[in-house]
């Protein structure tokens, strides 16, 4: 399978002043991940933040490891999409027809688009612009949002009853996700709270990721004073000093 699942787990330590248990903080998460020899940018993808370290989140991690990931190509082959449709998706690395605008040229080249367009013309009183711009409304469910729904359902079943503190999306320029206003609640007698970050993601350099699949990276721990975490922008430092990727 060309596309595989890649789960990234990051362990973050949020130091807290023992006296100030209602402290809030922010975290910036770098989406640049080293897979094999390459650094891959995980852009515009949603990361989930969980309370507790890897130990505390073992059931979640076990569910991640046990879950199966159906690749985009595999999904659309099973949905009996035409080679032209799959080629259209692959041309710009899209996961669904919502990714980019369908041009008139695309309509002539991709049979599914052509069929949906013709259906739209009939339905929308021969208005070509409406038929083309609203083309996805006449695609079959599997081709329209089937892959997205499958991904969502995988995430829902992996999460189970585990509730993420927050989720945030990386941008495509600095490839950073920011978690804001995180309430720090360390357990009694502790001054540090540990968090885990996870994502459900298809690696672009799949073959490299395959070799990493069974390997796990060690998680570096480092204590910082509460003062250095308190300010939002100083949290930026955590990105470099505390986090390292756990890839499974």
């Amino acid at each position: 399978m060309y596309s595989i699942r890649l789960i990234l787990l990051v362990l973050i330590l949020l130091p807290v002043g023992a006296a100030n248990l209602t402290a809030q903080g922010a975290l910036e998460l770098s989406g640049r991940v080293k897979i094999g020899a390459k650094v891959e940018k995980v852009e515009r993808k949603r990361f989930y933040l969980f309370r507790g370290g890897l130990e505390a989140n073992k059931p979640l991690i076990d569910r991640i490891k046990a879950a199966t990931y159906t690749s985009r190509d595999c999904f659309y082959c099973q949905a009996k999409a035409s080679p032209q449709f799959i080629a259209w998706l692959k041309a710009e690395d899209c996961e669904s027809p919502y990714c980019r605008a369908v041009t008139t040229e695309d309509v002539t080249k991709v049979p599914e688009f052509q069929a949906a367009y013709q259906k739209g013309l009939k339905q929308f009183r021969n208005k070509p612009d409406v038929a083309r711009n609203w083309l996805t409304t006449n695609l079959t469910p599997a081709l329209r949002d089937g892959f997205y729904k499958q991904q969502k359902s995988s995430i829902t079943s992996i999460l189970g009853t585990t509730k993420a503190v927050q989720s945030s999306m990386t941008d495509s320029v600095s490839v950073v996700a920011i978690f804001l206003d995180i309430a720090i609640q360390p357990s009694a007698g502790k001054t540090v709270e540990t968090f885990t970050v996870s994502i459900w993601y298809r690696s672009r350099s799949a073959e490299k990721a395959m070799s990493l699949f069974a390997r796990s990276m060690s998680v570096r721990r480092k204590r910082l004073s509460y003062r250095s975490f308190r300010s939002m922008t100083r949290a930026r430092r955590l990105r470099k000093s505390v986090m390292s990727w756990f890839v499974t």
């Binding site: 852009e43 515009r44 993808k45 949603r46 710009e92 690395d93 899209c94 996961e95 669904s96 919502y98 990714c99 949002d145 997205y148 969502k152 989720s167 999306m169 495509s172 672009r204």
Partner: peptide, 16 residues
């Protein structure tokens, strides 16, 4: 916005 970000606002992929 969160749902719509997930489905339509994927990264504009770069040509490799």
């Amino acid at each position: 916005h969160n749902l719509h970000q997930d489905i339509i606002a994927e990264a504009a992929p770069r040509r490799r």
